[in-house]
């Protein structure tokens, strides 16, 4: 933990979120059909921040919820059983909407695969987009993000930790060597 290096500080993170917000609104040609779904825990806070920022810019309240993907993971049997995180789908659902999935770090792509499976059981969106704060590479599935806060080239043995005020004591993205 001592060797952790801060790659994004709080100012970088707010800038990155602001840019993602503008890109989302631009590609969706407005905010009408948008639904934001954050993947717990930190993706859920990022989705909330994005929703609030859209309200700040356009004055519109975009439906924002959370999507826990634990029950759809492909590695459940490889680890001890995990507690479930809350899933809350906005009351109007996702049918025909543009769903933006929000997560903190994109790595293997398996979480996003699980999220796509989960969405499939909940409804039929018009489109699904992916927003991540950090893309650290090393994909194991053919999945790519639509909105990226920061492309961060990493080695597999490195660890990327996103810290957010809502759960941690500060906003930061830190890179550290595993086992260092």
């Amino acid at each position: 933990m001592d060797s952790a290096r801060t790659v994004l500080d709080d100012a970088d993170i707010s800038r990155a979120i602001r840019r993602i917000v503008h890109e989302i609104v631009e590609t969706a040609k407005g905010t009408e059909s948008l639904v934001l779904l954050g993947i717990p825990t930190r993706g859920a806070y990022l989705a909330r921040r994005i929703a609030d920022a859209i309200t700040g810019i356009d004055g519109v309240e975009v439906p924002c919820g959370t999507l826990d993907i634990t029950l759809y993971r492909d590695d459940l049997r490889l680890r001890a059983v995990r507690p479930l995180e809350p899933t809350s789908i906005p009351p109007d659902g996702i049918d025909g909407r543009i769903v933006v999935l929000v997560d903190d770090v994109l790595y293997s792509g398996r979480t996003v695969r699980a999220a796509l499976d989960a969405l499939n059981d909940i409804g039929r969106p018009a489109a699904v987009r992916l927003a991540v704060l950090v893309d650290r590479g090393h994909r194991e599935l053919p999945i790519r993000p639509d909105y990226v806060g920061k492309n961060l080239p990493t080695a597999v043995k490195e660890n990327v930790a996103v810290k957010l005020r809502e759960v941690d004591d500060l906003d930061a993205v830190e890179l550290s060597e595993v086992g260092a």
């Binding site: 826990d68 029950l71 759809y72 459940l76 507690p83 479930l84 995180e85 809350p86 899933t87 499976d117 059981d121 909940i122």
Partner: peptide, 23 residues
Amino acid sequence: VLILDTAAELGAVTDRSIKKLPT
């Protein structure tokens, strides 16, 4: 409490049109 919390989350599936999880 963990069992009750897990049941509460799983209960949401019962309200969906597709009442099925691949778990």
